[in-house]
Design a protein around this nucleic acid. Structure first.
Lengths: 205, 205
DNA sequence: TCATGTGAAGACATTCACAGCA
DNA sequence: TGCTGTGAATGTCTTCACATGA
């Protein structure tokens, strides 16, 4: 059974929503309720949940705690995965703030920058290293995901260094299309393109 | 003829790439060349370009300057569209840096925050207002797109204020699913979900 | 010959419709 | 009755394959 990107995106969204409900002590949820919150259809929710092998009950719907666990078993690594942020500018720091400690199975292990002012300092709890130390630090800490928050001009070069250091996936916030070998998973989150897209569709109505 | 979100995303990406090539004085490009850079297929490129009514030549391919213009005519507003950023934290400031002045037809006209330290100050060239002034400032400046960069807990409430003020589209970076009327266009760019997704697929390869 | 433009096929994703269950 | 699980139908997107043009 193949799972698509959209599947995973929705499952991760469901988990986010379910965690919120759990903290309000909600125990069960029906596909139509989750669908309304996640902005999709009940059939879609049922299929997505089916695809990870979890089953609900026709009388109580889905058990929230169990479903959260099942999504975790499917999407999370067995061991904690280590992540690095490259670029300690505003965006990099914003990411640490949003992120740190939120997910047990993901951990920001290092941040890289080339500003001597920042190197060897601890930023929001994460140690900042120089780009020269990249390969060494990534390998020693067994980091396999990188979040790229550097200016456009530096992105391609930094991405290549990351790959050389053994990174497997890149979340790219820099406003450039990277050109990388196909065995590396790249998710582009170009912020300028995002604004342009919203500007376009906000007019279409 | 209907145009899909993916269409628009790719067209905007093509424009980004083409603008880069233009500044290197490249004049023409073939669909297969653009496809390789944009990481898609030549057929896709041709269809996308077809969908906005532009035509190339079978001998020279597409004229880069003309194509950039055509994409602009299709995707950009006739008049400049005004955008606001809500939340002057690290992320909001990062966005201003990445953004300001990059696109002629989009202009960040105001930023909002509720920190008295920031209100009435000019941040990276953009004036910061208090959230109380939101409706007045948005209407006076004719702003119709908002970028939401506030903490998760505040996002829903702020989004409702934005809609009340007349916003038409929201680019949401807060890690929550907003629940808003369907006539508002919302693009979610949840950073935590993005990292989780990359972490997942980086293991799948 | 090598490109574009495009009908048609194929792949993929979503929705319909209903059996089966408690 | 009102839910889940799921084949089948539908809808959407992408790729194939080729006519056409310089």
């Amino acid at each position: 059974m193949k799972i698509s990107e959209k599947n995973i995106e929705r499952l991760l969204l469901y988990r986010r929503i379910l965690c919120g409900l759990r903290s309000e002590n909600v125990e069960n949820i029906y596909s139509h309720q989750l669908a309304r919150i996640a902005d999709t259809t009940p059939e879609q929710v049922r299929r997505d949940i089916m695809s990870i092998g979890y089953s609900g009950s026709s009388v109580k719907g889905y058990n929230i705690i169990r479903l959260i666990e099942s999504i975790g078993e499917f999407t999370d690594a067995r061991e904690t995965q280590r992540v690095t942020i490259v670029g300690a500018g505003n965006l990099g720091r914003a990411l640490i703030d949003y992120f740190q400690g939120r997910r047990r199975k993901l951990f920001i292990a290092a941040i890289f920058d080339n500003d001597p002012q920042k190197i060897d300092r601890v930023i929001h709890g994460v140690r900042c290293y120089s780009v020269e130390q990249m390969k060494e630090v990534i390998q020693k800490n067994n980091i396999d995901v990188a979040i790229l928050c550097v200016p456009a001009a530096a992105a391609q070069q930094v991405a290549e260094l990351l790959i050389e250091a053994g990174i497997k996936g890149i979340l790219n916030y820099a406003p450039v299309k990277l050109s990388l070998p196909s065995h590396i998973y790249v998710e582009n989150r170009d912020m300028l393109l995002a604004v342009e897209k919203v500007a376009f569709f906000s007019r279409q109505h």
